[in-house]
């Protein structure tokens, strides 16, 4: 069953930059999809359009059979709570505790008067702690977010998204700020969660070796256009060169260029 269907999706930013052009794509429920392309190809815009952080200019997006282009404010918040997002720069509040950062994922489940007073019900705190446990950093719950390493901070980001109990996970370059061993660990976490919970997951990456290692399906974007959609196993180096519009270099591979390979 399709969970995400985009038809003729186009995004033009104020100022005239066309970030996405007439994209048609479908994603099956439970898929683990890697979105590849050069920076500026529209990967980030695609993810942000799916949770409406960016407004589509043309076309429709259907999620779970419902068109999400014209949700009203309340429906939009409700919808966003079903879509977890993981960011390149983690987007944690550095000065707040890890637990408090993860509790942000429960905001939609708890009445606003309670969240504003910081009075989360016991079961929501338990839920947040169990999300931290799933990414292996429960013991860090009371630490300040900026006391953690980059890999641990991204795990807090994943736990926050998990706390939303989402149907879809969107990860926007989740490993771009991390070293190679940590990158693999975070990708394995995402893959494990996808397999255990069946949450449909879209991950933006620009490293082709990571894309091939973890992706079941690959979406290739070039200059805002969809140029590939299909199983990862069928993506050859020639196909990557077509997506990138140039020959593949060492910079396109995480483990190339003599960096640590663990």
């Amino acid at each position: 069953m399709e969970i995400i269907e985009c038809e003729g999706l186009g995004v033009t930013y104020p100022g005239g930059v066309e970030a996405l052009k007439n994209v048609d794509l479908t994603i099956e429920d439970g898929d683990f999809v890697i979105v590849v392309g050069l920076s500026g190809a529209g990967k980030s815009t695609l993810l942000r359009t799916i949770n409406r952080l960016v407004e589509p200019t043309t076309g429709t997006i259907k999620v779970d059979g419902r068109v999400i282009n014209n949700l009203d404010k309340k429906e939009l918040k409700e919808y966003r709570s079903e879509v977890g997002m993981i960011f390149q720069n983690f987007n944690l509040v550095n000065r707040s505790s890890v637990l408090r950062n993860v509790l942000a994922g429960r905001l939609r489940e708890v009445p606003t008067w309670r969240t504003l007073l910081g009075l989360f019900p016991e079961e929501d705190v338990e839920e947040a702690l169990s999300c931290l446990e799933r990414v292996g950093i429960k013991e860090k719950a009371d630490s300040r977010a900026d006391e953690l390493s980059g890999g641990q901070q991204q795990r807090v980001g994943i736990a926050r998204a998990l706390a939303q109990e989402p149907k879809i996970l969107l990860a926007d370059e989740p490993v771009a700020s991390l070293d190679p061993p940590t990158s693999h660990a975070v990708m394995q976490d995402l893959k494990r969660i996808n397999e255990e919970d069946g949450i449909t997951t879209l991950v933006n990456l620009h490293f082709i070796d990571l894309a091939q290692e973890y992706g079941e399906k690959i979406i290739g974007l070039r200059e805002g256009e969809l140029v590939y959609q299909g199983p990862a196993s069928k993506v050859t180096e020639a196909k990557f060169e077509e997506i990138y519009g140039r020959s593949i270099t060492a910079d396109d591979q995480l483990t190339a260029g003599g960096e640590a390979d663990v």
Binding site: N51, L53, L76, K77, E78, Y79, R80, S81, V83, G84, M85, F87, N91, L92, V93, S96, R100, A104, G105, L107, R108, T112, T115, L116, G157, R160, Q164
Partner: peptide, 18 residues
């Protein structure tokens, strides 16, 4: 972090607080 709260479905007051 503001964007993250927005992406979680938080409202304006929650964005301010968190």
């Amino acid at each position: 972090p503001l964007e993250a709260i927005e992406a979680c479905g938080g409202n304006k007051l929650e964005m301010i607080k968190y």
